[in-house]
Amino acid sequence: MRCAVAVRQDPQDPIAGLELTELDLDPPDGWVPVTVRAASLNHHDLWSLRGVGLPAERLPMVLGTDAAGVLRDGTEVVVHSVVASPDWHGEETLDPRRTLLSERHPGTLAETVWVPPRNAVPKDPVLTWEEAACLPTAYLTAFRLLFRAADLRPGQTVLVQGAGGGVATAAVLLGRAAGLRVWVTSRTPEKRSRALELGAHEAFETGARLPEQVDAVIETVGEATWSHSLKALRPGGVVAVAGATSGAMPPADLNRVFFRSLRVVGTTMGTRSELVDLQRFLATTGVRPLVDSVTDLQGVPSALGRMAAGDVMGKIVVALGSEK
Rank of each mutant, 00 (worst) to 15 (best):
Glu130Asn: 05
Ala132Asn: 03
Ala133Leu: 02
Ala133Gln: 00
Cys134Ile: 05
Cys134Gln: 00
Cys134Arg: 10
Leu135Ile: 06
Leu135Glu: 01
Leu135Trp: 08
Leu135Ala: 08
Leu135Asn: 07
Pro136Asn: 12
Pro136Met: 03
Thr137Lys: 13
Thr137His: 15
Thr137Ala: 14
Ala138Cys: 09
Ala138Asn: 13
Ala138Ser: 14
Tyr139Trp: 15
Tyr139Gln: 11
Leu140Cys: 07
Leu140Thr: 13
Leu140Tyr: 10
Thr141Phe: 11
Thr141Ser: 10
Ala142His: 11
Ala142Met: 09
Phe143His: 15
Phe143Tyr: 15
Arg144His: 15
Arg144Phe: 12
Arg144Ser: 14
Arg144Glu: 04
Arg144Asn: 15
Leu145Phe: 10
Leu145Trp: 05
Leu145Ser: 15
Leu145Ile: 14
Leu145Pro: 05
Leu146Asn: 12
Leu146Ile: 08
Arg148Cys: 03
Arg148Ala: 11
Arg148Met: 06
Arg148Trp: 12
Arg148Gln: 14
Ala149Ser: 15
Ala149Tyr: 11
Ala150Tyr: 08
Ala150Asn: 13
Asp151Ile: 10
Leu152Ala: 07
Leu152Ile: 08
Arg153Ser: 12
Arg153Trp: 13
Pro154Ser: 08
Gly155Ala: 06
Gly155Ile: 13
Gly155Cys: 09
Gln156Trp: 02
Gln156Arg: 09
Thr157Val: 15
Thr157Glu: 14
Val158Thr: 11
Leu159Ser: 09
Leu159Thr: 06
Leu159Trp: 05
Val160Arg: 00
Gln161Ile: 11
Gly162Tyr: 02
Gly162Asp: 00
Gly162Arg: 07
Gly162Cys: 00
Gly162Pro: 00
Ala163Tyr: 04
Ala163Leu: 04
Gly164Trp: 00
Gly164Thr: 10
Gly165Phe: 04
Gly165Ile: 10
Gly165Trp: 03
Gly165Cys: 04
Gly165Lys: 03
Gly166Asp: 03
Gly166Phe: 06
Gly166Trp: 12
Val167Glu: 04
Val167Gln: 10
Ala168Ile: 09
Ala168Trp: 01
Ala168Asp: 04
Thr169Cys: 08
Thr169Leu: 06
Thr169Val: 09
Thr169His: 04
Ala170Arg: 13
Ala170Met: 07
Ala170Pro: 06
Ala170Trp: 04
Ala171Glu: 03
Ala171Phe: 01
Val172His: 04
Val172Asp: 02
Val172Cys: 05
Val172Trp: 00
Leu173Arg: 15
Leu173Cys: 02
Leu173Trp: 00
Leu174Trp: 09
Leu174Glu: 06
Arg176Lys: 15
Arg176Val: 15
Ala177Val: 01
Ala177Arg: 13
Ala177Glu: 02
Ala178Tyr: 06
Ala178Val: 06
Ala178Lys: 11
Ala178Gln: 06
Gly179Ala: 10
Gly179Tyr: 12
Gly179Trp: 06
Leu180Gly: 07
Leu180Gln: 08
Leu180Glu: 05
Leu180Phe: 01
Leu180Pro: 01
Leu180Lys: 07
Arg181Met: 10
Val182Glu: 03
Val182Gly: 01
Trp183Thr: 07
Trp183Ile: 02
Val184Phe: 05
Val184Ala: 05
Val184Trp: 00
Thr185Met: 06
Thr185Asp: 04
Thr185Tyr: 00
Thr185Asn: 04
Thr185Ile: 07
Ser186Leu: 03
Ser186His: 01
Ser186Cys: 03
Arg187Val: 08
Arg187Ile: 07
Arg187Ser: 15
Arg187Glu: 11
